[in-house]
Design a protein around this nucleic acid. Structure first.
Lengths: 202, 202
DNA sequence: AGCTAAAATAAACACTGTTCAATTAAAAAT
DNA sequence: ATTTTTAATTGAACAGTGTTTATTTTAGCT
């Protein structure tokens, strides 16, 4: 078959990303197959290479889609939560976990996909990742008070993300079950609040 | 070929594990191949299935080997460090990171290998994992003072492990580089010390 | 020496990812 | 309206994978 008119380039891109996301959500990273994703979209493998250049490019795009859904999820969870005490921080951590739990395979795939250090990442993929970090930057910044948007705070935010990520990651991978912990989200939240309190003190 | 006498069952097991570990260290999880590991050991794929039952069983055994090496690494790093202040905690976190860094592919493979929730894990594999946790239990317990070896402390230790794991994991996967942090180990250590201080206060 | 039972293999199967010449359809040019 | 050009899509080929199973080989025992 040759050039078809059933989808514009943008539509095709979006279609393949949606289908890939659905497949990775259903099967998980290890059983994901580009061939199968293309098949479900009504195209053949070659098309994925045409559109995304490489499998890495495709997986990056699929994971970026997950990142964007995740950002929307967080904003919704924060919507209307008052700026009193640690309410918004709590909501943020809880939503971080609930997204991961309800999209476990897609969430884990983000971190299962290892890319060569030198492989260049498209700027829209970087943007999808930075979008999530920006939400945490904003919330922690607001909690810390005005004028807290400096380099040190940015650094702390990334460390807090790593903290929550660690709990969530070990939880979903099953390692935490092996450790007999039944509320990893609660533990993550406790750690975050302790760290923030320590930061405020100094 | 049939029954051979060049290795006892235990030797064969150990040989395959060593060879598998070396291969996964060299290539990383995604490019690991049971066929190739068997080839390097001078056997064929079937032997791996004979000895370990399944690929999951084999990978579990290979990763357990990494866990044991990791435990030895930590003990060596702790050897002789005085029980003053947070010296041993610091040494522990630093050694956690340095092992991961110097065995990056093998370390990441531990977490790249996803196993079905219901797949039963051999007790020696559980033991290898618990061995590492036990070291942290001991050190944090000692730091907290006598009589601190209760359930709450165990729970905290697992949360601290998750915290350090998160930093290490994002670091080696390259996500942290994307976030422009250049000393994740230092950040992890800071968080651990803040949490421990908070714990001591209450 | 012959028998038995265990261990190791080789081959088959159904999949992968990846590349690329051939094909097809749309757009442009005549 | 036809032809030509150009771009998109495919399908087949290749080298690899995990997994299963019938077959072969060998060590140990009688």
């Amino acid at each position: 078959m040759g050039r078809r008119s059933d989808h514009t380039p943008e539509e095709l891109r979006a279609l393949l990303v949606r289908e890939g996301h659905a497949l990775i959500l259903e099967r998980g990273f290890s059983r994901f197959s580009a061939r199968e994703a293309a098949r479900r979209a009504g195209y053949s493998v070659g098309t994925i290479y045409n559109v995304f250049g490489s499998l890495d490019g495709y997986l990056l795009a699929v994971n970026s889609h997950t990142f964007r859904l995740w950002s929307v999820w967080l904003e919704r969870a924060l919507d209307g939560v008052p700026h009193e005490g640690t309410a918004r921080i709590e909501a943020l951590v809880r939503a971080y976990f609930s997204f991961a739990a309800e999209h476990a395979n897609a969430w884990m795939s983000i971190y299962d996909h290892r890319i060569d250090r030198e492989t260049e990442i498209a700027k829209e993929d970087v943007a999808a990742r930075e979008g999530l970090t920006a939400i945490v930057d904003r919330e922690v910044g607001q909690w810390m008070g005005t004028g807290a948007d400096d380099a040190a705070t940015r650094r702390l935010v990334r460390s807090l993300i790593a903290t929550v990520h660690g709990h969530c990651s070990l939880w979903l991978s099953g390692s935490y079950a092996l450790m007999n912990e039944d509320d990893p989200a609660g533990q993550a939240l406790s750690r975050v609040l302790e760290v923030l309190a320590a930061q405020q003190r100094s």
